[in-house]
Design a binder for these strands. Structure first.
Lengths: 185, 185
DNA sequence: CGATCCATGTAAGTTGTTACATGATTCG
DNA sequence: CGAATCATGTAACAACTTACATGGATCG
């Protein structure tokens, strides 16, 4: 079963949402460890409904398009909890396109390579800053407005912290590598 | 075009290899940033040959199964270099299933969660140790036996170093998070 | 004598991406 | 007045995984 199914079930387990809101929620909270296209979200919601893990109904709105709101069912809750209980006994290796490029760039022009690494550095720096400001503030805000969500906001903060540490390490590595290539090639 | 195509082209750009050897090579060198199933490798080699980026011929062997050895063509080299030159202007967000589980584990039993985090810690520790011993030795060995590959072995070491730094950061985060959950839930 | 290595694939299914399609409202 | 937000999807394609299938040689 796809991870996305569990992200949707997990989100709906907190509160009922529409496809659009689920997308927005992912863009604010899970984006640094899992993302999905809108098209995939709607398709997966259909599957979940077909499998009886969620139900939905149309909500009519004035001055805005009508929308379909999804609710988790007991079967959905059971499925989610079953997944969360199952131990992960294997590492999942991430895929990193930049490392692939670097690895095979032995015959490439040094300056081209350095430009790519510097561009990546600035992108990672941007992402790190976003985690440290926007995401941080959003978590604090949610914690303040919904104190009953405390167990969740603490875990959200833990996930944010992982992003922060891993971006810091990546930037440190990029700096090391840029230095190495400048000095020795 | 899939990244795997370029990994195969990039490897064949160093030397001619068989599907089996390409799989082995990936298992020794790129495994911590890109892996692929055997079935996918053979299929992709077919595609590359069909597109004229590689050629192949059967090599007969005594006492061992015959094998098909692949060679990169000039078109393959051009394709590879075109890909390596193209700048990467966007970050690629990794996907991390453990973070998904953690994020939605607000109602889970504390001990179940701790067990999962401790298991992950030991898996990451194993992987880190492998990078620091086996992979490190393999790079040193390759560098010693093929000094003309120096530009490549240096980049290989840079890629290995990324794995080391990122595993260290991940383990640090796991320790922090285990502590947090022990103390506050 | 069982496990691992050598060696290559097919078939089916799942997951994820990209492009396309529509249209009203609100904000700067 | 143009961009962003709200809102939902279909179609086609690309990438990746899992299960299956075979069979000799070598090593402990």
């Amino acid at each position: 079963m796809s991870v996305l199914r569990y992200i949707l079930l997990g989100s709906l387990n907190y509160t009922s949402l529409t496809g659009y809101q689920l997308k927005k929620f992912m863009g604010e909270s899970t984006f640094h460890f899992w993302y999905a296209q809108t098209s995939q979200i709607y398709r997966t919601l259909d599957e979940l409904e077909h499998d009886g893990l969620v139900t939905s109904e149309i909500e009519e709105q004035e001055d805005r398009p009508d929308r379909r709101r999804y609710h988790i069912t007991q079967a959905g809750r059971d499925d989610l909890h079953g997944w969360l209980m199952r131990p992960m006994t294997q590492l999942e290796m991430p895929k990193d396109k930049l490392l692939v490029r670097l690895f095979f760039s032995g015959q490439m022009d040094k300056e081209v390579l350095l430009t790519q690494l510097r561009l990546q550095r600035s992108l990672h720096q941007q992402h790190l800053t976003e985690l440290q400001t926007v995401t941080r503030a959003l978590i604090a805000d949610t914690a303040a407005r919904a104190p009953e969500m405390q167990p969740h906001t603490r875990l959200w903060e833990a996930a944010r912290r992982q992003g922060e540490l891993s971006e810091e390490a990546y930037i440190r590595w990029l700096d090391e590598t840029i230095q190495l290539i400048q000095d020795t090639f």
